[in-house]
């Protein structure tokens, strides 16, 4: 696993945070529960990591999973609230350091990677169900628009998360089953593109 070498101790309690993955920008401290983010090579305190209730999951943090032909190390786990319930997102890293977001909601598994800036839908996208956009040559139709709140997270992440942070999200589906998701806050928009994964195709490595 690719890792970066830093003097990486928790700025709150001094606990050794261990070797970090290449794209990690944020990590939580197992000892004190503080989350820290990396800025200009220095760790800074980012607040609390929230409470993660134990639930039955397809896989968990630090598991190695095989999805079809690819192996992933589950580096980070975020739980988003949806009002009446929640769903889980996992930052899953491949051997070469690249990663995907695995979004899991009661057996619905989606693998998505970050959409390059130049492919983002126009900023004046209206965010309503039924809206269509064309991304990377595929026509997508919006199927769901709602608000999510970050409830808790554990592990390492390629982006900075804050417990309690809210954003609007929009999910689009293409004719061929591809999925496009937008996470929109007042000052930023993150877009992801990917596909459905059959939960029966996800195999947890037993050696872990």
């Amino acid at each position: 696993m690719s890792s970066q070498s830093l003097n990486n101790n928790c700025p709150n309690c001094g606990n050794e945070l261990g070797a970090l993955l290449v794209r990690t920008r944020m990590i939580d401290c197992d000892a004190c529960g503080t989350t820290v983010f990396l800025q200009d090579g220095v760790f800074k305190n980012a607040g609390q990591r929230g409470e993660m209730h134990d639930t039955q999951m397809l896989f968990g943090l630090k598991d190695t999973v095989r999805i079809l032909e690819e192996r992933y190390y589950i580096a980070g786990h975020v739980r988003y609230s949806y009002g009446r319930g929640w769903w889980d997102e996992f930052w899953a890293v491949k051997g070469n350091g690249d990663g995907v977001w695995l979004s899991i909601d009661e057996g619905d598994v989606v693998s998505q990677r970050s959409l390059p800036k130049q492919d983002h839908p126009p900023e004046d996208t209206f965010l309503y169900v039924g809206e269509t956009v064309t991304v990377q040559g595929q026509l997508f139709t919006a199927t769901e628009v709602s608000t999510a709140e970050c409830m808790a997270f554990r592990g390492e992440f390629p982006e900075i998360l804050h417990v309690g942070e809210k954003y609007r999200f929009i999910n689009y589906t293409s004719e061929h089953g591809a999925l496009l998701s937008g996470e929109i806050t007042d000052d930023d928009a993150l877009w992801f593109i990917g596909t459905w994964i059959d939960p029966f195709d996800v195999k947890k490595d037993q050696s872990h």
Partner: peptide, 21 residues
């Protein structure tokens, strides 16, 4: 229903069981 694998169907037909997702 399975918390990890979601929703599915178990069909009983003429004494045969079929699993559908």
């Amino acid at each position: 229903f399975s918390p990890t694998h979601g929703y599915a169907w178990l069909t009983v037909e003429n004494g045969h069981f079929v699993f559908t997702r």
